[in-house]
Amino acid sequence: MDTIFQGFISAFKLMAALDPTLLQIIWLSLKVSGGALVLAILLGLPLGALLALKRLPLRGLILSVVNTGMGLPPVVVGLFVYLLLSRSGPLGFMELLYTPGAMIIAQFVLACPIVTSLSHTAIVNVNPIIRQAARVLGANPLQEALTVIREARYGIMTGGIAGLGRVTAEVGAVLMVGGNIAGYTRVMTTTIALETDKGNFDLAIALGVILLGLSLIINVALRAFQRLGRASSGVVLWD
């Protein structure tokens, strides 16, 4: 009991003092997960939109692959990205292993299926009348597609936030490809794992509390977007 209590006391001291190590770890976590999310949206949103709006060949197969990707265990992703980036791997020449770049790639692989799949779902679920309305108001095919995508924007943002939630919480992939190097590739989750292992609870608890807070913010945002995306009740005129 005493250790835990002491741990919390020291943790809050660290936070109150804006401890540089703590801040650096948080900052890197945000950079890695934020970077991964941006890349995931750049690829996942157009892909989800294409799958939703066009009759692509192999669409069913691609969707199955994407949906499987949503449940990939982070250590498996860590393993494959490791193999890809290791010195003898196909991308070994880039010398990215054990850098923040490698961590971004791994988290991108984790976030992308979520962003793609939830974008696809959001766009597919836009009422077909929106597309008709855009057309009869004079939209060209591109404007028509963009109008449907914009109508799905809150669902798409939900996908982005869900992807962010997944990558900020995972530890397996970043640990394997980042190496948890102090001052360089140490993020919140890997630090918690390591410091707990060593019995240093204060930094671990401080980061744990912050991670919980972040997770709370993410969930509040998720609910807000879901609410905004819902059409108001009763008066909407479906065809």
Binding site: N127, Q132, A133, L137, G138, V236, D239
Partner: peptide, 19 residues
């Protein structure tokens, strides 16, 4: 073509209000 489509319009029975 698009030019012609832009000279006419239809009010759908369900309107199709944008969010």
């Amino acid at each position: 073509d698009l030019e012609l489509r832009r000279r006419l319009t239809l009010l759908l029975p369900g309107v199709g209000v944008f969010n």
